[in-house]
Design a protein around this nucleic acid. Structure first.
Lengths: 230, 230
DNA sequence: ACCTGAACACCGTTCAAGT
DNA sequence: ACCTGAACACCGTTCAAGT
């Protein structure tokens, strides 16, 4: 029956982990712009300035949030075929980033990567090395795969619709619909693709991923020291 | 010899175009967070509230800025091979977004696309249609190409280094360097790739783009109504 | 050691007022 | 019609003060 106010629980028992969890919760539910030192403190039942006792500032808090997100990604397993390993890992990247869309622009931006971030990249490189990628081609493959995966997630995260029906509604309404009359190919695209039953953007993800992985595997096989045609 | 103050020029002669140009200039030079209605007004030698006479609010200003960025992209030409058209267009997308990195997260997010945005997408779809892509495969190809291009640019824009030497310096310094000892594959990656002379991230862009375009062209050729093996 | 409260230099936007 | 100035409800962060 002691003091309790607001929706917050811990009240005077901050730990860095609890602060990070609450921060990710706020960002997930209300977006990164709604995550302010003041709103986060309110969530934790504490004053804004208390947070500075655990984190040097908002940047340090973001560092910790990003490392937690990396920690949620399923790593490619050891003995696996590299394509299967990266397929599963990439599906996990996408699902984690759909849970935490605010993290995408921060993922690659940290100058002080945390332990989960380093473990993540280490496991990726290990998987490609085990598959026999020579250094130069490994760097190429890693860059190309993540360009595809992160770019796809970026498009999904920023597209102003979340489903086929929402997309159909948007292109039918003002100001989109009337504008299309001046752009015949866009109008064709709307009619033949977006308005077709079953349209979604996300259905392109996995086939595109496999396309990229297969194309890179062909390069790998050609670079094999045992000769290209085994 | 009339009134002149600050670095600004037009003083009491705002036009929407001049406001957008100034806004893009501020965002290019000092980042999107430095673009505030107050800083923009200062740049234009005017009070913040004057801007609201030309734009409904900051969102409307961002709409106009994004449309200007789309207008800078070189469109695929009509009679061209589709792969060459998209290769040139994609190089243009990348160079425009390197000039205006703040635009990347905004590109796909507008609910009210401007005329340059619509013309851009129209030309892209036209190029793919002329190449014989059937609707379903066209949607796939467009999504996959832009995932790759935008994802690559996202990585470039957010990586905390801008060149090979900068990357080498970062992984040698605190806190990155010491942390690598616990991650042998990352250490190998640093040694064999990042510290090698001539390392840059950007060198992966064009070969990766061609890889993606070729893989999609193979799908297109297979879908050709005249039969797969011409 | 950990949390607080006032203060500083900022935001976007509303509103009433000037010309 | 177009620009202004004060005001409102916010920011991140510094600093001195509490316990």
């Amino acid at each position: 029956m002691a003091s309790q106010r607001g929706t917050a629980v811990p009240l005077h028992k901050l730990t860095p982990d609890a602060v990070v969890s609450a921060a990710i919760g706020v960002a997930d539910r209300r977006g990164l712009t709604a995550l302010t030192m003041r709103s986060l403190a309110r969530e934790l039942g504490v004053e804004a300035m208390s947070l500075y006792h655990h984190f040097a500032g908002k940047e340090a808090l973001l560092d910790a949030m990003v490392d937690r997100v990396y920690g949620e990604i399923a790593l490619p397993e050891a003995g696996q075929d590299w394509r299967e390993g990266f397929r599963a890992r990439s599906l996990s990247v996408r699902s984690v980033l759909r849970r935490h869309p605010w993290a995408l622009p921060l993922l690659e931006s940290r100058r002080a990567p945390g332990p989960a971030t380093l473990a993540y990249h280490d496991a990726n490189v290990a998987c490609l090395r085990a598959a026999g990628f020579p250094p130069r081609l490994l760097a190429h493959a890693y860059a190309v795969i993540d360009a595809y995966v992160l770019g796809f997630v970026l498009q999904e995260a920023t597209l102003p619709f979340d489903s086929g029906p929402e997309a159909a509604a948007m292109i039918a309404e003002e100001p989109f619909g009337p504008a299309l009359t001046a752009f015949p190919h866009m109008a064709w695209f709307a009619r033949e693709i977006v308005l077709e039953p079953g349209y979604t953007f996300e259905r392109e993800f996995e086939p595109g991923l496999v396309l990229v992985l297969d194309a890179l595997d062909a390069l790998r096989a050609r670079a094999e020291p045992t000769g290209g045609a085994e």
